[in-house]
Amino acid sequence: MAETDYRNGPTRRAVLEGGVATGVLLATSIPAYAEPAGAVSAAASAAPAPTMPMTLRINAKDLSVELDPRTTLLDALRNHLGLTGSKKGCDHGQCGACTVLVDGRRINSCLTLAAMHEGDEITTVEGLAVGDRLHPVQAAFVARDGFQCGYCTPGQICSAVGMLGEARAGWPSHASADVAAASVALTDAEIRERMSGNICRCAAYPNIVAAIRDAAEGA
């Protein structure tokens, strides 16, 4: 886990290792939990892999970095660019904790290579607020208490931002009675279906749905 010049703030790990009292218990379990794929890779490759120079545009900033081609966009963000807001849950596209926006569209950053995103406009949860002014979806999650432990929250929020754009564009969903209808009414059933790629193990779903409903209505 090489530290680079691109970090723009302390990581959760650095904070935990720094001896924060509440971190003592977590510090032993989080690194192993957070990097299961890294452990496999390290064992499988004896020689250091050649790296590729690339420039990624993240939250309106061009960031240049040298990465092993295997580096997923999520690992590039978290381990090389100091952007630890995007979370690693399952690392297999099943939980949605790593959701980011690429050219305005929500994707799982764990299931794509950083190298594939040169030239794209990438927005992470860190890039949603304008200064101290939260993005309306962020504000709605706070107002509705749309989380409990918070681990899935950055992915939930990025996913909701992307989803609201899809709904505004009139995209139907599996919950839509008529897929040919020109517009979408974001009922709770629609919100739940459209957000099914984001899992919350605390099951804060009622408040997550309420927050997204508020954001959709501009509340």
């Binding site: 929500r106 794509t112 989803m163 139907p172």
Partner: peptide, 19 residues
């Protein structure tokens, strides 16, 4: 081809369908 839209929307998640 509404059946094709229905099938696509019955698969995966919004994030995965975007990719």
């Amino acid at each position: 081809y509404p059946m094709l839209t229905q099938a696509l929307l019955a698969g995966a998640s919004g994030q995965i369908r975007n990719k």
